[in-house]
C-alpha cells in the first residue's frame, strides 16, 4: 500500500494534522494504536476520505541500508503488507499513551527508536511539588529545524515528528505543514 503521508498517531493532534494534509490534496493514512475511536476528529478525517487504521500497531520498520530513510513500515494487523509513503509523520503522543516508554534511567521512542531528550538519572525526573512543572514534561523526541526526527544525531530524510511527543513543549505544526504541503 502506498500513501503520500503516513501518520503514526496516538497523540492529541494526530487527526487534526491528518485532516489538514488531506485537505491540501495529500493521500493520508493515519495509524493509531488505541481502540476504534469515538474521537470526533478521527471520524471527521475518515469521513473526508482519509484512510484510518485504528487499533493497530507498527511492529517493524524497513530502513534504507545507510539508515538515512524509512523505506516501509509494517503493522501487527496487516502483517507482511508493506506500507510506503513519501513522508512518515511520528505523532504518537507521550508516556500515557505509550508514544514514549521508560524504565530506570532510560526513555525511548518505541516505533523508530529516534533520538529522545531526557535526564539520565531517573531520580531527577520529578519535582517534589506536584503542581510545579515536572522535569519529565520536558522529555521527548528532538526535532530538527526541518521538523524531522534524528537517529543517532543524524536527520532521517523522510521521517517528520510533531505533536506532544516533542521535547520541551515544542510546537512545530505550522512549520511541518509548510514542509509537507
Amino acid at each position: 500500500m502506498r500513501a503520500d503521508v503516513i501518520i503514526i498517531g496516538g497523540g492529541q493532534q494526530d487527526a487534526a494534522l491528518a485532516t489538514r494534509l488531506l485537505e491540501a490534496g495529500k493521500k493520508v493514512l493515519l495509524i493509531f494504536e488505541g481502540r476504534k475511536s469515538e474521537d470526533r476528529s478521527r471520524e471527521e478525517f475518515r469521513a473526508k476520505g482519509g484512510s484510518l487504521l485504528a487499533g493497530d500497531k507498527v511492529c517493524r520498520v524497513d530502513w534504507a541500508e545507510d539508515g538515512s530513510r524509512v523505506e516501509a513500515i509494517y503493522t501487527e494487523g496487516l502483517e507482511d503488507t508493506a506500507l510506503r509513503a513519501e513522508a512518515y509523520v511520528l505523532c504518537s503522543g507521550r508516556f500515557f499513551i505509550r508514544g514514549l516508554l521508560s524504565e530506570e534511567d532510560r526513555v525511548w521512542e518505541p516505533v523508530f527508536g529516534v533520538d529522545v531528550k531526557y535526564l539520565k538519572d531517573s531520580s531527577r525526573w520529578c519535582d517534589p511539588d506536584f503542581f510545579a512543572p515536572q522535569p519529565f514534561d520536558s522529555f521527548g523526541v528532538i526535532p530538527s529545524e526541518d521538523c524531522k526526527a534524528l537517529k543517532d544525531g543524524k536527520e532521517v530524510e523522510n521521517l517528520y515528528v510533531t505533536g506532544d511527543i516533542l521535547c520541551d513543549g515544542i510546537d512545530n505544526t505550522e512549520e511541518l505543514c509548510k514542509r509537507i504541503i
Binding site: 500515557f96 505509550r98 521508560s102 531517573s122 519529565f136
Partner: peptide, 9 residues
C-alpha cells in the same frame, strides 16, 4: 515514577 507508573503520573 518510571515505566508504567510514569504513564499514570
Amino acid at each position: 515514577c518510571r515505566a508504567e507508573q510514569l504513564a499514570q503520573a
